[in-house]
Design a protein around this nucleic acid. Structure first.
Length: 254
DNA sequence: ATGGCTTGAGTGTCAAGA
């Protein structure tokens, strides 16, 4: 089973690229973030024609998540149960006995902002829910845009970003707290090229100069991670015309 | 230099992303 995640920064703009990439990469499951569209506008027909079923939880302008799958999606859950949030950032479904959690973690803006406090609060709620999900679903993968660079190796300039948003200690502790529940960062299970990133700023030639961050992740439970056969970042879509600022990450499980 | 791109909203210009 090949599982991928991609923050598309507007599915309206990126739909042709998503369809191209589905053909090229042929994932069994693709989780999307920042669809930025209401559910009524979700391009279900185009995806069905491409051979993918879909569930989605969107809103106008901001956020929005979706899970595409070749096989049926069951036990669909939008949002973190008990965590009241108008922002559409979480969607879960079960595919072929594997629990899929698609998440779009708040950006946090700056460490002294209210949005950063929301991010930490949100991550605490995610942690509690994940612990619960793992009890029910030993085979679980949680993928998406975490907006956290777990280690200095995941940031192009650790000195400049020291204790800044995406790299701050509380955010990293929250990330490792998720791992401590029994998840594994699939990307780091394998030897990877140095300076591997999944996001680059649109400005200042960020991608051309490889000034990026690895903030999109595939975390798998032990039962699933044991059978992880590979995990890589596909930088191809970042070279497209009108690219998303993020590029897909994918992992293969036996 | 709070600049630099991109998107969506909405039609002038701003919020938000990371």
């Amino acid at each position: 089973m090949k599982i991928a995640t991609w923050n598309v920064n507007s599915l309206n703009v990126r739909l042709p690229q998503v369809l191209d990439w589905l053909t090229e990469a042929a994932p069994d499951v693709l989780c999307l973030q920042e669809t930025k569209m209401e559910d009524a506008k979700f391009p279900l027909d185009a995806l069905l024609a491409a051979g993918y079923q879909a569930v989605y939880a969107g809103q106008k302008t901001y956020n929005g998540v979706a899970i595409l799958s070749r096989t049926p999606l069951t036990e669909v859950q939008a949002g973190i149960p008990g965590f009241d949030d108008e922002q559409r950032r979480v969607l879960a479904a079960t595919v072929d006995g594997t629990r899929i959690l698609c998440i779009y973690v708040p950006n946090g803006q700056t460490v002294d902002s209210d949005k950063y406090q929301y991010k930490l609060r949100w991550l605490r709620a995610l942690h509690a829910w994940l612990a619960d999900e793992l009890v029910r679903h030993p085979r679980l993968v949680m993928v998406g845009d975490y907006n956290i660079a777990p280690a200095d190796a995941d940031c192009y300039d650790p000195a400049a970003w020291h204790e800044q948003v995406l790299c701050s200690t509380p955010e990293r502790e929250a990330f490792f707290g998720l791992l401590a529940l029994g998840l594994s960062d699939c990307f780091r299970r394998f030897t990877q090229p140095e300076k591997s990133y999944s996001w680059w700023d649109y400005r200042q030639g960020g991608f051309r100069r490889n000034l990026g961050m690895r903030i999109d992740h595939i975390l798998a439970s032990a039962a699933l991670a044991e059978g992880c056969q590979g995990c890589h970042i596909d930088t191809g879509p970042r070279r497209n015309e009108r690219p998303s600022d993020h590029t897909p990450v994918l992992a293969t499980f036996c």
